[in-house]
Amino acid sequence: MLFPQIRLQSTFAQTELQIQKPVQQIEQPGAELSIEQPKAELTMRRIPGRLTIDQRQAREDMDLKSVGRRIEEAAQLGRQDWLAGLARVAQDGNEMMRIENGGGAITRQAKRNSEGPQKEFNIGWIPSHFSVKIDYEPGKVDIDWQNHKPVIDAKINKLVHEYTPGTAQVNLANHPSLEIDFENLRHVGTGGYEQKI
């Protein structure tokens, strides 16, 4: 006995993809940098120190006097001696005029004029202490400077970016299909009618 059969044969749909990858290019140019450093300005003013040494007194103590100083001392000594002599002569004359006070004026004057002054002696230093005068004015240095800031110029370059987007195309490679096949299929009708399908 043959049983009726239905046969189904199907084919699935198949897709295909065509992909083009994206392309991206990135380039970063370096920055342009220029730096200039102006020199600092420096000015210096110097006042030199001054040392003065006065040794005239020490030289005079050692009898190393200048001609002008010797003339000055001689003139001063001559004037003092002249005044002293004038005073002595006046005193002697006064004594001689007053003979009423008693005699002996000539004897006293002779004794006084014949004896010199008593000599004095003591320890001394040649030259004397602190006879050399030293004076010092220290020097000065004035320093003035002016510094300058650096001049910086920076130029930033933009990023170079190129981008090509990717694409994807979807196509149907095989269409779906369904095949139906019948076997042993019969139609039996009234009155004994039979038909094979």
Rank of each mutant, 00 (worst) to 15 (best):
residue 82 W to I: 02
residue 83 L to C: 07
residue 105 A to I: 03
residue 112 R to H: 07
residue 113 N to D: 15
residue 117 P to A: 12
residue 122 N to P: 01
residue 120 E to M: 07
residue 131 S to G: 04
residue 102 G to K: 07
residue 96 M to V: 13
residue 94 N to K: 04
residue 89 V to H: 04
residue 95 E to W: 05
residue 115 E to C: 09
residue 85 G to D: 08
residue 82 W to P: 00
residue 124 G to V: 11
residue 101 N to T: 01
residue 111 K to S: 12
residue 93 G to K: 07
residue 91 Q to S: 15
residue 123 I to L: 12
residue 124 G to W: 03
residue 100 E to Y: 08
residue 83 L to G: 01
residue 114 S to H: 15
residue 117 P to H: 08
residue 120 E to P: 02
residue 92 D to I: 04
residue 114 S to Q: 07
residue 120 E to R: 08
residue 92 D to A: 13
residue 83 L to T: 09
residue 87 A to H: 07
residue 126 I to H: 04
residue 97 M to V: 13
residue 125 W to P: 00
residue 91 Q to P: 00
residue 92 D to E: 14
residue 103 G to F: 04
residue 122 N to C: 05
residue 125 W to D: 02
residue 123 I to S: 06
residue 117 P to L: 14
residue 106 I to K: 06
residue 105 A to V: 02
residue 94 N to R: 06
residue 97 M to H: 12
residue 124 G to C: 09
residue 121 F to V: 14
residue 118 Q to S: 12
residue 116 G to P: 06
residue 89 V to T: 14
residue 101 N to C: 06
residue 114 S to L: 15
residue 124 G to P: 00
residue 99 I to C: 10
residue 109 Q to R: 13
residue 113 N to S: 05
residue 110 A to Q: 12
residue 119 K to D: 04
residue 103 G to Q: 08
residue 111 K to L: 04
residue 87 A to F: 04
residue 84 A to T: 07
residue 112 R to A: 06
residue 108 R to G: 15
residue 109 Q to H: 14
residue 107 T to D: 06
residue 104 G to A: 03
residue 104 G to Y: 12
residue 128 S to F: 03
residue 114 S to I: 07
residue 110 A to H: 15
residue 84 A to E: 14
residue 90 A to E: 08
residue 106 I to C: 03
residue 94 N to E: 05
residue 88 R to C: 01
residue 103 G to D: 13
residue 108 R to Q: 10
residue 84 A to V: 01
residue 103 G to R: 13
residue 130 F to R: 03
residue 97 M to A: 11
residue 118 Q to L: 10
residue 104 G to C: 02
residue 108 R to E: 08
residue 123 I to V: 05
residue 87 A to S: 08
residue 119 K to E: 02
residue 118 Q to E: 11
residue 91 Q to M: 05
residue 100 E to P: 01
residue 83 L to S: 05
residue 87 A to E: 08
residue 118 Q to V: 10
residue 82 W to N: 09
residue 104 G to R: 13
residue 122 N to W: 02
residue 105 A to Y: 01
residue 94 N to F: 10
residue 107 T to Y: 11
residue 129 H to T: 12
residue 100 E to D: 15
residue 90 A to V: 10
residue 83 L to R: 06
